[in-house]
Computed example of a mutant assay.
Amino acid sequence: MFDTSDQIRMQRSQGEASAAFAGGRLRGLRQQGSAKALLPRVRGVPEVVFLNTSGGLTSGDRLSYATETDARMVATTQAAERAYRADHGPAKVSVRHRVEGAGWLDWLPQETILFDRADLDRETVISLGPEAGCLMLEAVVLGRAAMGETVRALRFRDHRRIERAGRPVFLEPLTLSAPQPRHALLGAARAFATLVLCARGAEDAVAAARGALTVPGVEAAASGWDGKCVVRLLAADGWPLRQQILALMAALRRSAAPPRVWQL
């Protein structure tokens, strides 16, 4: 479908950013290339805000984010990540989080917007210690309805994994690859998201999650089993999806305020 030859050599974006905390205090910060890790001044739980200064992703771009913590931490992105037309191979994104001891991570990136003919490979891995927990969000929008954008073709491979003590406890490989991409479960929806709460007893949060599924225009369901609560969302556009995600954040984070960048 796409020309992946190397006849055209264009400048590519590469970036790596990581932050490590111990006892709630910063002990390591690394930034390189187009990736930045911002540390806003907030009370209580530390926040890490990742930023891709290149403005989006296309063929040959490489982006890497990582965190480590042994206490509570929130990590997010400053804005929606954009994957643009890519005619010469995929952009690649790697996300690695390690939560040790009895630590907790809220990984709450803003949505990924896939434009027509985007080509993106992404892998997200959250490694939990035996007593650690996390809340993981992934949200995707197929073009911006308000701008009249139509996604006619794309390649998107998104591999998400949560592991505890080295063993997978949640594994979700997603692939969208075709002209007029429509996953079997998407129907007419052009925005979708998954939230995963992973901790001992997380299945007990299903009632709270279902009680928060009140935003019109969003089709949603929640289920819980074996230390997990998983919520899946479908919407015709990114705006109602975002409002529903914010409602779920409040329900699953015990009314804690969303990260500051989500409030703008």
Rank of each mutant, 00 (worst) to 15 (best):
S5P: 09
S5I: 06
S5G: 10
I8A: 14
R9N: 08
R12E: 15
R12P: 07
E16Q: 12
E16N: 12
A17S: 07
A19L: 01
L26G: 05
R27H: 12
G28A: 02
Q31F: 02
Q32H: 15
Q32T: 13
S34W: 07
L39A: 05
V49W: 04
V49Q: 11
F50M: 06
L51C: 11
N52W: 03
S54R: 05
S59V: 09
S59G: 02
L63C: 09
T67K: 03
T69W: 03
R72M: 10
V74A: 11
T76K: 03
T77L: 03
E81V: 10
E81K: 04
R85E: 14
A86E: 14
H88E: 14
H88R: 15
G89Q: 01
P90S: 08
P90D: 11
A91L: 09
K92W: 11
S94K: 15
H97A: 05
D106K: 00
L108K: 06
Q110A: 06
Q110D: 10
E111H: 09
E111T: 09
T112R: 00
T112S: 05
D116H: 06
R117N: 15
D119I: 04
L120K: 05
V125F: 13
I126Y: 10
E131T: 13
G133Y: 03
L135F: 12
L142N: 09
R144N: 14
R144F: 13
G148D: 12
E149S: 07
E149Q: 04
R152M: 13
R152I: 08
A153P: 00
L154S: 03
D158R: 01
H159A: 15
H159G: 11
R160A: 14
R160K: 13
I162R: 03
R164H: 04
R164G: 06
L171E: 13
T175V: 15
L176P: 06
A178E: 03
Q180S: 15
R182M: 04
H183Y: 14
H183Q: 14
A184R: 14
L186P: 01
A188W: 00
A189I: 01
A189M: 06
R190K: 01
A191T: 04
T194L: 04
L195Q: 09
L195S: 08
C198W: 00
G201Q: 00
A202T: 08
A202D: 08
G211Y: 06
L213G: 07
L213K: 01
G217R: 00
E219Y: 00
G227I: 07
V230A: 07
R232A: 04
R232G: 04
L233V: 05
A235I: 12
D237N: 08
G238N: 01
P240K: 05
R242M: 12
Q243C: 14
Q243P: 04
Q244W: 10
A247Y: 11
A250D: 10
R254H: 14
S255F: 08
P258K: 05
P259K: 05
V261Y: 07
L264F: 14
